[in-house]
Structure formats: C-alpha cells, structure tokens
Design a protein around this nucleic acid. Structure first.
Length: 472
RNA sequence: GCCCCCUUCGUCUAGUGGUUAGGACGCAAGAUUUUCAUUCUUGAAACAGGAGUUCGAUUCUCCUAGGGGGUGCCA
C-alpha cells in the first residue's frame, strides 16, 4: 500500500488570489483529487508587515468560487512560530546553523565580494562565533554546504543540479526571532505530511536550498514539481492588462468556475488533444506528467471560447445559481447597459435555452436578454430607428399588431406560423418584416431569433411595444 | 555579473530517430440563417539559429540568441 498523497497550496496573503496562484492551486487540487489524496491550504503569513486579513478573505473567497475546497482548516504559518524556532535551535545545536551579525555595509561588501568571486555569500559567525555583544542583534543563518552539489529530482523539470557554492547561507530566524519563509516552508511541509510540493518555478532555486535544510534535519524529501509561470499575452510578466486579475474579477466578467478551471488547467497541462475537460474528467485523468515545462501565455479569446462552451452546456439551474451569485455581488464587468435591479430571474430561466447558446459569458447572456428588462418605451439605437423609418414599415407593423391580439395560443410555433402566414398573405419577404419587428421589440437590430423574442416578451409587451412605435 | 529553467503555427498544445508535423483558439473564405451569435466546410499559419552524432534529425549532444526565474532579516 502506498501512502496517500497530500498536496498543498500555500499563498502569502499580500493581495487577492491572482490567476497564476489559482492555477497552482488547481494543479494541487486536481492532483490530490485524482489520486484520492488530500489537498491542504496553508496561509504563509510570516511577513507580518505585508499580510492582511482582507487578503486572506479574498484568497479563500477566490478558491471557493473556483470550487477548490481544501480538506480541513487552513494552517496559518504564523501560528507555527514556536515550532519553527524549535527547529532552528535544533539546527543551531547540530552545527547546521550559526548566529550571525553584520552591519548593512558589511553585508553589502560581503555580497559584492562573493559576486565578484562568482560564489554565494557566507557571513560572519560561520567559522567562528560572533562576539557576545552582538548576540541580541543577530540572525540565525543556515550553514549551507560549500562543497558538492544539490540535486532536485523534479517531476516537471527533470533533474536539476546546482553547485553548492551557488547557494548562500540564508536567514532562518530574523533578528527579532521570527522565522523566515525558507525555514517555515520546510518545517510546515514536513509537519503537514506533504508528499508532493507543486508550486511555481520561481521557487526552483529556493528548492535546492530547502533540500539542504531537509538534509541537515535528516528529513525525507517530498516530491517536487515546479510548474512554469504564466506570462502575459506579450510574453512579459503577467500584468493587469493581460489578465493578472484576482479570481473574483473573472467572476465579475461572467466566467463560470468550470470554464475557468478548464481553461486554466489547459494552460501548461495537456492530455493528448483533449480541449474540453469537465471536472469529473479532470479528476479522472490529471497527472503531473502531463505538465509542460515551458511557460504559457494567457489568452482571453480562448478563455471566452471555452467558457462559452460551458455556458451553453450547463444545466439551467447551474446558470441561474451562477447568475444569482453574480447579481448578489452586484459587480459586473463590463457594467450592464441597464439596471441590475430590473433583472427577472424567472424570465431568464424560462428562456435560457436560446439565451445561453449565444453567450460566452454570463455578462453576454445578461446583455442578450436586455430587451426583456429595459424600460419602455424603448430607446432605439441608430440602426433600429433607421429600420423603423423605412418606407412601408409603419403599415406592416400596423397590419401585424391585431394578429398578435387575435392569436389563440401564445407559443413559439403559433408565432412562427403567424408571421409566415402574414408574410405570404401580404406578398412580403420575411426580410421585410423581421427587421422592423426586431427593432420595435428590442430597440436594436441585434437580438435572438425573432420568434424567441416575441414569445419571451409575452403578448402584452409585444402589443405595447408595437403601439409605442406605430405612428397614427 | 554568476547560477538555474525554457524555446513546435500569432496563442495554447500533440507528436516521433524516417509523419503530407496533428488538434484547439484566433484569423480568412464559403454554407446555413430574419439580425447577431451558434453550427458546418475549406484555407493560410510552426519545429529560434548554428554545429555535431546518425543512413536519416523537429526528436539526441553542444554552442549562440531570445525569454523567464533566483541571487533579500519578501514569499
């Protein structure tokens, strides 16, 4: 029996859950779920200056929206401080760490010299103890090996070998006695029983240093998988312009969690030529071996396409719930062309079949349905008023109006029959009657199919809107 | 500077020591259609460059270039 795998996502709470972090979380989550293991969350708040409760809340919210629920309560790194200090003491006692003190100027000199020599920096206290008077102001540094090399057997990057003379004596405990990230990750990953560390490859060099700490402690190594970072559409570092937004921002743009997950997991991971990978399939076939080594660029157009697929395929109930949640937050990006208070979920629900198949995002869906909610008399856009102003249009609309009043059953087929019959009787091409109707009923020349528009509006509103535009 | 990682159509990618180098998004054209979108068909579009290994390299090795990361009492 192999032991169950345990992964973790370990964000530092200095801002929202950005898209790169979301993907890292997704990979960890997907791997744990695919292996029947556990996915844990750890908040790396050892930097008290920069960590905020708001950021913690935003990260939790983002993960929750994406459906990446962690197993168990999150671990707060700051609460493990005593344990970190204990391990540092242990390292000190075993000769794998030392107390060090130097002024900023001295440190700068040391670094310049080391850089000139092409090796990593070593600090006072390494070879012989520092003077007692400096103890209070000292930091605890790791006494990294100088000879030899450290190998990272990375699941994504392959074997990466770094010479030990390139790895410096990092700080374990700050002069105020608080632990640094380097110490804390190692201790916490060990204590939490993490078997697979999947994280951004900006940690690759750090990883070698961490391995040295594991070794000094005599601890077993977890498996490491360093995934490439996401770049912006121009290849440069991801910026807001490229989509380096918080997960919440994507919700506001009307993306669905499942669409987001599908797009994100495809960014740097593949399973043959598969494009559409719903969650159950993802859990079934995700594997670290499918992760690509090259960094990927974020592409909104493809996100749209994939999301559009999920909008069209999702159950009505799921779409309505997602819409509800979006409306509750009252954050729409871009903003709606009408007041969100006018949205009628029942009306939406009754007409989702044709609405969702023409929308890539929930925002688009809401805009497609705008004709249902806008206040009347409708404001006509330029093309619509032009279509209404055409020769003969007034008579056509006048002729149709009573037909709607007389229609027995208000259903789609009957409406279609009515319009076709009317066109035949009048000897008019359908192209003559659809545009003015569309304009009168929606205020626009772009809308869902005319039968759907008429049907969804209902008899009274159809009649009312026609009367609004018909000139006596 | 030094160390490490990366490089297949514009983008995300599949792929193998011998393939017409495949798929998807986007783009273009066409079909369908009452508009838009969808859908369908077709098309243009890639192995970064240079050496080497080999009968044969996109695939293996090295170099160069370009991109990214690290080099913090940040994480």
């Amino acid at each position: 029996m192999s032991q169950p795998i345990i992964t973790r996502f370990a964000p530092s709470p200095t801002g929202y859950l950005h898209i790169g972090g979301a993907r890292t979380a997704l990979f960890n989550w997907a791997y744990a779920r695919s292996q029947g293991g556990k996915f844990l969350l750890r908040i790396e708040d050892t930097d008290k200056e920069r960590s905020t409760d708001d950021a913690i809340a935003a990260i939790l919210k983002g993960l929750s929206w994406l459906g990446l629920e962690a197993d168990g309560e999150p671990v707060f790194q700051s609460k493990q401080q005593d344990r970190h200090v204990e391990v540092a003491e242990q390292l000190l006692a075993s000769g794998h760490a030392y107390r060090s003190y130097a002024t900023d100027e001295e440190i700068e000199d040391i670094r310049n010299n080391a850089r000139a020599a092409g090796v990593a920096a070593r600090y006072p206290g390494r070879d012989e103890p520092i003077a007692d008077e400096f103890i209070d102001r000292s930091v605890v540094r790791f006494k990294a090996p100088i000879e030899g090399e450290t190998k990272i057997a990375d699941l994504v990057q392959g074997d990466v070998v770094i010479r030990n003379d390139q790895l410096d004596d990092l700080v374990l405990l700050r002069s105020d006695g608080s632990p640094t990230y380097m110490l804390a990750v190692v201790v916490d990953d060990h204590d939490m029983g993490i078997t697979h560390v999947i994280r951004g490859d900006d940690h690759l060099t750090n990883c070698a240093k961490q391995i040295q700490i594991y070794n000094a402690l005599g601890w077993d190594l977890p498996y490491f998988a360093h995934i490439p970072l996401i770049h912006g559409s121009d290849g440069a570092k991801l910026s807001k312009r490229h989509g380096a937004l918080g997960a919440e921002a994507y919700k506001a743009m009307g993306y669905l969690p499942e669409g987001m997950r599908n797009y994100l997991v495809k960014l740097g991971w593949s399973h043959g030529d598969d494009e559409i990978i719903p969650t159950d399939k993802l859990i079934e076939c995700f594997d670290v071996s499918g992760i690509n080594k090259a960094p990927a660029r974020f592409d909104m157009a493809k996100l749209d396409h994939i999301n559009g697929h999920y909008v069209a395929e999702s159950d009505d109930e799921d779409i309505i719930n997602a819409l509800k949640s979006l409306i509750d937050e009252n954050e729409f990006n871009p903003e709606l062309s009408y007041s969100a208070e006018l949205i009628d979920l029942n009306a939406l629900s009754a007409n989702l079949s044709f609405l969702k198949e023409r929308s890539k995002t929930l925002i688009e869906l809401l805009e497609t349905a705008a004709y249902l909610f806008k206040s009347t008399p409708l404001e006509m856009d330029e093309k619509a008023s032009k279509a209404l102003g055409k020769e003969g249009v007034n008579d056509i609309l006048k002729g149709i109006l009573p037909q709607f009043s007389d229609l027995q059953e208000w259903n789609r087929d009957a409406i279609e029959g009515l319009l076709k019959d009317y066109a035949n009787e009048q000897g008019l091409k359908f192209g003559k009657i659809a545009p003015p109707l569309r304009s009168a009923l929606t205020g626009s020349m772009v809308s869902p199919g005319i039968y759907d528009v008429i049907h969804s509006l209902g008899r009274e509103r159809v009649i009312q809107r026609l009367e609004d535009v018909i000139k006596a």
